[in-house]
């Protein structure tokens, strides 16, 4: 088997507010034999906000991230769906528009950098589902999650725009379900799983963000979910941190623990809740984990 090694880009959120996603990823990757190499120079992808500000600045700063990965000779692995989407859109444009790549390299050259246009950006989810493989993952499971009813929450950015991302099918996605099944969980299907959590407008139109989060949570709950699993730290922030606000705004009891993808994998690989930083969640997962 080829060695699985990546330039590791946890994203800003998982270096601070959701650092349990980062530490869990490191534990899990180590156990699965996935090498994560730090990117000490990497800047923020902009989370879409740099795109709003100035397209050229967004593209060039993302090309700077790619240049570092290229120097390392590795593809990028991120654990944030928004970073995935933002970087993939930049990589896609740079690959398909040679004049944009030239123009970007002119600016990069001023900083002594160069990007040749060939870096691939992957999510931990893709690496588990594809590079490592579902069968291999299943074979490493020591504590199957059954009979836990888990609702996958992709959010928007791990699936769209599908041409730039080029991995899963945004209408009938399979990767997160396949990973959860490999871990021994029972997968709950519901319509909101590929929709938006509202994070991008948390600080802009907060009521919309809270109602959106609550709608997704209730949707999963109605279909019998006992917990939610998401590959995106921003979705985690909304679904977990904003859950009590959503309960108030929608006048409904939800109480649905939300896990980062790496935490769920970690549980099935035998790590404890405290190894995986579960105490950092606002909605307690204790009831589920005690079973």
């Amino acid at each position: 088997m080829t060695l699985l090694k990546y330039a590791y880009y946890p994203g800003c959120a998982s270096q601070e507010i959701t650092k349990e996603a980062n530490s869990s990823t490191r534990l899990v990757a180590d156990k699965l034999g996935i090498q994560l190499h730090n990117m000490p120079k990497a800047n923020c992808c902009g989370a879409g906000l740099l795109t709003d500000y100035d397209y050229d600045l967004y593209i060039t700063l993302n090309a700077r991230i790619f240049a570092e990965a290229e120097e390392m000779g590795m593809d990028i692995l991120t654990i944030c769906s928004t970073c995935l989407m933002v970087m993939s859109r930049a990589a896609f444009d740079l690959k398909n528009k040679p004049e944009l790549l030239d123009k970007t390299n002119e600016v990069l050259a001023k900083a002594g950098l160069h990007y040749s246009g060939n870096v691939k950006v992957k999510h931990l989810l893709w690496v588990l589902a594809n590079d490592l493989g579902i069968a291999k993952l299943a074979s490493m499971v020591t504590k199957p999650l059954g009979p836990l009813k888990a609702a996958p929450f992709y959010g928007c950015h791990s699936l769209r725009p599908s041409d730039a991302l080029g991995f899963d099918d945004p209408e009938r996605p399979w990767s997160l379900e396949a990973v959860l099944k490999a871990l021994g969980a029972e997968v709950v299907d519901y319509t909101g799983k590929t929709k938006c959590c509202g994070f991008q407008v948390d600080l802009v139109t907060e009521d919309t963000a809270i109602e959106m989060t609550g709608t997704r949570l209730l949707d999963a709950k109605t279909m019998g979910a006992e917990c939610i699993v998401t590959p995106c730290p921003f979705c985690h922030i909304n679904l977990d941190n904003y859950q009590s606000a959503a309960e108030k705004q929608l006048g409904a009891e939800i109480e649905l623990p939300v896990f980062h993808l790496a935490q769920m994998v970690g549980l099935a690989l035998g790590f404890s809740a405290s190894d995986l930083g579960m105490s950092r969640h606002l909605v307690s997962a204790e009831k589920i984990l005690r079973r």
Partner: peptide
């Protein structure tokens, strides 16, 4: 500024 950047419109 109401757009939530869900990318569905592009898709």
């Amino acid at each position: 500024w109401d757009c939530v950047r869900c990318v569905h419109c592009v898709e």
